[in-house]
């Protein structure tokens, strides 16, 4: 904050300290919200813990996620099973950690696939206009007219539940909005002088799109990916809850919650632990994403 008032030139340096303080206080009052606070750091730490746990899953000496412990069936936390076991006596902690691999993979892959594809479509529509624009517009409207979960159900039925297909079909859901954002931004930039100038210099369309247009629309799209990560995790959770995500016995958070649902009154821990973990993870992604987005907005306004 201190650099800010100095950057406004010699005069600021010349004013009395009291005046400086007043300015600093006013600036702080004007934008008190965009610092990285506890609501950024605590969730970030949680996400790092979850990520490390998931990536290193084979190395933690956990019992295999599908190993049945006949001694402890449907058991609350006991020694050897810090979070207890499920109906089949499988270690819940191990299942949750292995499930995190699915959630995180989908959470990152789907938005990248969707936003990437949406970006390409949006640039084509916004840059070439005409019938390409019209066709893409109709495709997007049609896409939006089917509830996302229904699209996924259709894909699950038709293509079956491999991790790749889940990422791919979930990615499709993110295309429309990304394409719309990109199209609007491309329309906006494609008419600007620097693009016209590049075109007059004989630059190819591809070059113009990647060198002139892309750098200007990349920030909103990155912000958009940040929003989409927790959404992807939630939808994967819903799919696996319905048993339509990756095939059993691969554990996934939604699947574990669904398995515990039948035994909610006797062994609530089976559903509750994955619910808590998933909630904290999604919440953390939301909080971290929001903090970064605000910060990005500040940077782009040239405020920092």
């Amino acid at each position: 904050m201190a650099e800010l008032s100095q950057s406004s030139g010699k005069r600021a340096a010349a004013t009395a300290p009291a005046q400086q303080d007043r300015h600093a206080a006013a600036i702080a009052m004007y934008r008190k919200r965009n610092k990285f606070g506890l609501f950024f750091w605590i969730p970030l730490v949680w996400l790092i813990i979850v990520a490390i746990a998931a990536i290193g899953a084979p190395f933690w000496g956990l019992p295999p996620a599908d190993e049945i412990d006949w001694v402890y069936l449907q058991s609350p936390p006991v020694e050897g099973h810090p979070l207890g076991t499920d109906v089949l006596g499988r270690d819940l902690l191990s299942r949750i950690i292995w499930g995190a691999r699915v959630s995180l993979t989908v959470g990152f892959a789907a938005p990248f696939i969707g936003v990437g594809a949406g970006m390409i479509l949006g640039m084509i529509a916004g840059y070439y206009r005409g019938w390409a624009d019209e066709v893409i517009g109709i495709a997007i409207d049609s896409w939006l007219a089917i509830p996302g979960l229904v699209v996924l159900l259709l894909f699950a039925v038709v293509f079956g539940g491999s991790l790749f297909m889940v990422c791919f079909s979930l990615g499709l859901l993110f295309i429309p909005t990304a394409a719309r954002i990109t199209r609007a931004a491309t329309l906006n930039y494609a008419g600007r002088e620097f693009v016209l100038a590049a075109r007059a210099m004989g630059a190819s369309d591809f070059r113009i799109l990647t060198k002139e247009v892309l750098p200007n629309i990349i920030w909103p799209l990155i912000a958009f990916i940040l929003i989409d990560i927790p959404i992807a995790i939630v939808i994967e959770g819903a799919l696996s809850f319905l048993g339509l995500s990756v095939k059993a016995p691969t554990p996934s958070w939604g699947g574990i919650i669904a398995e515990g649902r039948e035994h909610l009154s006797v062994s609530p821990h089976i559903s509750m632990y994955p619910t808590i973990v998933m909630f904290l993870t999604v919440l953390s992604f939301n909080l971290v994403g929001d903090a970064i987005r605000r910060r990005l907005a500040d940077v782009r306004e040239g405020a920092i």
Binding site: L4, S8, R22, H23, A26, I27, Y30
Partner: peptide
């Protein structure tokens, strides 16, 4: 006075 991004 108004608080602004540049000061008071």
């Amino acid at each position: 006075a108004f608080a602004t991004g540049r000061g008071m």
